[in-house]
Design a protein around this nucleic acid. Sequence first.
DNA 1: TAGTAATAATTTGATATCTAATGATTCGAC
DNA 2: GTCGAATCATTAGATATCAAATTATTACTA
Lengths: 150, 150
Amino acid sequence: MPISFHGTKTETEALGTYVKLVRATETITAVTHRHLARVKLTVSQFGVLETLYHLGPMCQAEVARKNLKSTANITTVVDNLEKRGLVERIRSFEDRRYITLHLTDAGLSLIEAIFPAHVERMVKGFSVLTAEEQRQLGDLCKKLGMSQQA
Amino acid sequence: MPISFHGTKTETEALGTYVKLVRATETITAVTHRHLARVKLTVSQFGVLETLYHLGPMCQAEVARKNLKSTANITTVVDNLEKRGLVERIRSFEDRRYITLHLTDAGLSLIEAIFPAHVERMVKGFSVLTAEEQRQLGDLCKKLGMSQQA
DNA sequence: TAGTAATAATTTGATATCTAATGATTCGAC
DNA sequence: GTCGAATCATTAGATATCAAATTATTACTA
């Protein structure tokens, strides 16, 4: 059994880059979302609230697409948000297959209360990179992400 | 309720970079790990097998650290790998708190069989970026990841 | 030596997440 | 107009994931 991987330069580069990408993502996600524990929100729940906050009411399938999750998953996350009275499900009249999600007053208050701190943490998290480096990183990520055929 | 976020340039840059980072990571992870479904392995299970394959037998806490997961989580993942006879738990003699994880013959055969295809997919996934761009991306991610104080 | 602190693994209870199957509804083609 | 394809949401069953509590063991300390 090999003690470590020895491939071509191309192979070790790709694997190494992937590891760095994943670690950076997980680390910054952990740091920037840690404050959510105080208000008992998970990252996914925050994602749903944020989507509704910034883009307005929409159906669950669209929330799923915007968050890169399955509709089954969104059903569960919305269940938990609904239990806490943070979102409301409203069956659409025009097309009864759709359920439109709305923030309740409590949900709006909550996201409004925590979003500024969230932005601040994000800015601080990325502050190690210059504006130019952030742009570079974003461009490389966009290029990488876009190129993967689903 | 605002329709979309309007912050300072610094704020929108940080938020935008974060979204691109997360999307790139999730997309390339999905594409490069899709082949695991054929051998009924999850990404986490593959991660544990790969760690043991490349670094040799080690205790669960160390596997947890290397995979950025909790020890509780590794317990579950190892339970499922053990059920399939892919890894073996061996209680340490010197310090009975430790359990050393070993790949079984079946586990070794499996990881040896799929790892080349995994590397190939990783190379292909990153092939949209030049070697220089991959190095750049890796450096930026490393800088970003390292700077976050736990 | 007794007692306390630290570490490894597990358990518990909760949420997340997927695929696949299902039910409800709408739409399109014929 | 009716039937079949497509879409939305949910359910079922499985694995993942965490924090917190627990157990077992070791190490340190007075």
